[in-house]
Design a protein around this nucleic acid. Sequence first.
DNA 1: CGATTGCCGACTGTCGACAGTTTGTCCGGG
DNA 2: CCCGGACAAACTGTCGACAGTCGGCAATCG
Lengths: 232, 232
Amino acid sequence: MSESQSEEFKAIRSPNLVDQVADHLTEAIIVGRFTPGERLSEVGLARSLGVSRAPIREAARLLESRGLLVSQPRRGFFVRALDAGELEDIFDLRLCLERHAMEHLAHACSAETLLALHRQVEVLCRAAASGSENRRIEEDLAFHRMMIAAVGNRRLLKGFDDLAHELRLCITLITKTHEDPDTIADCHHLLLDALASGEPARCREAIDYHIGVARDYVVSGVGESRQKSLAY
Amino acid sequence: MSESQSEEFKAIRSPNLVDQVADHLTEAIIVGRFTPGERLSEVGLARSLGVSRAPIREAARLLESRGLLVSQPRRGFFVRALDAGELEDIFDLRLCLERHAMEHLAHACSAETLLALHRQVEVLCRAAASGSENRRIEEDLAFHRMMIAAVGNRRLLKGFDDLAHELRLCITLITKTHEDPDTIADCHHLLLDALASGEPARCREAIDYHIGVARDYVVSGVGESRQKSLAY
DNA sequence: CGATTGCCGACTGTCGACAGTTTGTCCGGG
DNA sequence: CCCGGACAAACTGTCGACAGTCGGCAATCG
């Protein structure tokens, strides 16, 4: 109760231009309004958003730390362009973090956590059925975030959140068709069953498979879209 | 090689006030010139460093992303104060990253890498013998960084670098005596022998033990210094 | 005497402007 | 036709200043 109150207050006290600009830029990048590698003009952004350059610069620094932008001294900020190698790296790190989480949860997963995860899978399936690619991605990430959050390690969660931004960046690269809700459900129930069993080896196998599928999904998607666009 | 060159260039062509301020602040925090939780005045820092507030703010954002500072809206920046829980979290994440690296290297560790790591252990021992606590810490971190770099995953390395800043922050909390160079050497040779053996299970055991020791070293040190200062 | 309210100083958030650098272009020469 | 250098436009890095806000202190009221 007092928490909801404080959150409400926090919502009020957010006239932070930096955060607003950061959110705006983040969405613009995620939905692909900028092309990868594109240079961002500080003055241009400042003019188009109706603010000064200072908030732009600070927001850009923030996004740089999240891996959405890269900066070159005296040249400005560019939207991060991922090559195949970086893509592999990102999914390898994701595997690293989620393996750790799974291993921890294998022998310390409360019934409530499992229930919450089951519910999230349902939400995810509904999102997939709705046809909105964006919502499906977000709910999928939310599931994995929930799993990692259950470990109780804030630093680990922060590491995942940072990585999640780059995962979203991966998604922008691909032009993908609809994914079957049933397949998604099965794919995630495999994880939950492994967790429920409490067997570390099975958990590891499950998460390895799950993330392997996700990686293949993205790299194949990137291949297709690259073939399609014929660029570079 | 090309890496050291690019770093050298970066060092040369760095009239970047932001980076300089960031380095200055980082060192000031690491050596404990600021007390944990202390509020940093932007104007004060700007005056004392002879620069404007804009570079200060951007550098502070950078350090915030590295976990050295925390910001409260409308209140400014504070040096991060770690509690026991966060300390556990940090070492748990370190374990997560280094386990992953060890596992990868267990069946893909070149002879050159092993040689380079052996040399780094020697450097580390010399640093320990020199009596400079700071140099010992840095060379120790350099060893682990080198190990993770050998995996070839840049994103993983970045994750470690971010974490390394927080590890340094942990170190500032403890007031510790000299550590025996021989012990340090043994401790690290255990890792190298495990790597050389190529047995994943042994590698995992070695890194678990190694980081467990490091964590105990820090938490016990924190306990002592806290007892000593009687604060809070 | 304790709690509340209004005020004051200090600080952060934001802005517009200036200086130095980079980039693209145009011109002349080979 | 291609190449190199100089010029100009645009941009980034940095600065000083103004406005809104926060925390603390004192005066006031119950």
